[in-house]
Design a protein around this nucleic acid. Structure first.
Lengths: 331, 331
DNA sequence: CTACTGCAAGACAACGTTGTCTCTCGATTC
DNA sequence: GAATCGAGAGACAACGTTGTCTTGCAGTAG
């Protein structure tokens, strides 16, 4: 004997199947006495409606589930986006299936397919594959996709992006204004869209100031080594811009190691907890992952509700938070 | 016209519905020529099986979905647990529905009910309600629940717990061994099970050493104020044990504010990023959230696979990581 | 040449629910 | 007092799949 069904409840209450359905769905056209009998039977049998079966039959064909694919739900940025999406979904009775991509294009595609099979009502995706063209065949046409953090390639959809380029340019100008002329940029591989935008911002500001650029690609795990190499150059930079969280932390370690943390300025992209408790406190270009998650969820739900305008690009402003490390003057 | 169904594929390939089903499910008893026709039709129509309908009819009645309810998927501990569960599920083709409870018992129950309606195959729960007795009526009997981080009350199930009590006692002994006699404990309200265990560990060690206890309940948001109050007492403690992440950080801020960070020792429960870059580096009792998530997921899958032994309690060892703040000597 | 075997493929019911149609019966209207 | 109406309740089909049973047909043995 599996779990009880509406039929079991109907038999137990001595009414028809359909009457149970009406009571369970709160339709008003049921005699209060019958409704009470039904509710008693529901309680005594421990009946619980089968959402899958109900979905199958209903006209709106909604599973009230969305898929969320982020870089890694355990990193602070993705986790905050994830949480904001959850909060935005809660009020609508929508639940969230999550997946971490770890920069793996195959996983991105596999999980998109898996969520499509589950008939998710929509997808929020921080793309990692070089191209999202596969969505045209693997994702259900007509079911909305909203991109977050990184723009899509080869597929059209709303995108919620931080002001990567202008935010970085602002930070570099901040360094220039304090007299720095040798400002190095440490960033991710240009394969990643956000890395490209931030690099552009750096170049914008350096060109404006008529300064030569100095760019390094720093792998997440090798950021400390890359920074050490940079800082032991003959004409070492007097300021660093680190274009991503893990790189910032690697750079901090390198500066600490060389006891240069009070002599070389540093601004990092993306805020992190305790940045203000370090010595010196770390100046950052803060993103607003909560606003990004919220905006993405809202855009998705608008589409799910039938909005059918041209895809939009929604910018979430970054904010320069001066704390000390970015205000150090050149030696 | 909605998305194509097996029937559409069958018509398009000129075969029966059932043959399509066989091909889609990879059954061997289909003529290769027919199978090829079916596959072509699947591709050309963009057919994607409806997992909900399939679930409904299949004998095993599995949704290949589990529910995960944690304190807050954006806090580093929960996020790491969440990620470990995801990794453990991936290989089994199981997807994860997540929810954040924010210490709200109502939300715990509501989300458990919602996941039950969705026929999740199992639930991993970090309980926040004072009692999980509701599961007996609201959760499907026979569908497994595994508890993580905190033990259940009023319901039996496997539980994966950190060594809260012994880990705390070890840390307090560490302080005692360095000559501290006035050691204060700052912890969460005793409503929370882990807070109680850690408090017990503190009492164990203090009694062992014959020292008087000094305990404060510090709300997450007011940890800094609570610490300030404690440190301005006439006979102020020479060492602090903070029983939780946010409290540790509040205490750090308070110590910094009073410029006591090099004079009052501090050990915190639960590690956090950058603890080693602070001044002084922060000694912690580290939990292993990845091991906890993994153990919980494995236990759940064993139950789903039919294991039916007595519920177990699985301990995940904490580890004292001496970094500096816990090795300061009393003034 | 007939009867039997085996296997591929189709017909049909069923999973648990909701949409639609029909029926009954009491209340309202002229 | 007969015709009309409305509302509550049930019968039945349908959603998209899979389990089971039946059919048809080729191959084999007697």
């Amino acid at each position: 004997m599996g779990r009880p069904t509406m039929n079991d409840v109907a038999r137990s209450a001595g009414v028809s199947l359909k009457t149970v359905s009406r009571v369970v769905n709160g339709e008003a056209t049921v005699d209060p006495a019958l409704a009470a009998r039904v509710r008693a039977a529901v309680a005594s049998l421990g009946y619980r409606p089968n959402l899958g079966a109900s979905m199958l039959r209903r006209n709106d064909r909604r599973t009230r589930t969305i898929g969320v694919l982020l870089e890694d739900v355990s990193n602070p940025f993705s986790a905050a986006v994830n949480r904001a999406i959850e909060d935005e979904s809660r009020g609508r009775g929508v639940h969230v299936l999550t997946g971490s991509l770890d920069e793996d294009p195959v996983r991105e595609r596999d999980l998109a397919v898996a969520f499509a099979r589950r008939h998710a009502d929509g997808l929020i995706l921080a793309p990692t594959a070089p191209d999202q063209g596969y969505l045209a065949t693997d994702w259900q046409p007509g079911t909305p996709v909203v991109f977050v953090d990184r723009p899509p390639t080869g597929y059209r959809g709303d995108a919620v992006l931080a002001t990567n380029r202008s935010g970085t340019a602002e930070a570099v100008r901040h360094l220039v204004a304090r007299g720095h002329r040798r400002i190095a940029f440490l960033g991710d591989a240009p394969r990643i869209a956000t890395a490209r935008s931030r690099r552009q911002g750096y170049r914008d500001a350096m060109r404006e100031a008529g300064l030569p650029t100095c760019e390094t690609v720093a792998p997440d795990c090798g950021a400390e080594a890359a920074t050490l190499a940079l800082l032991t150059l003959p004409a070492r930079p007097t300021a660093l811009f680190t274009a991503q969280n893990l790189i910032t932390i690697g750079a901090l370690r390198a500066l600490r190691r060389l006891a240069l943390q009070h002599r070389v300025a540093l601004i990092g992209f993306d805020d992190f907890p305790l940045a203000d408790l370090l010595d010196p406190p770390v100046t950052v270009v803060a993103q607003d992952p909560v606003a990004m998650g919220r905006a993405a969820a809202r855009a998705l739900f608008e589409r799910i509700d039938g909005h059918t305008e041209e895809p939009r690009e929604i910018s979430i402003r970054t904010m320069l938070i001066p704390r000390g490390s970015g205000e150090l003057l050149p030696a």
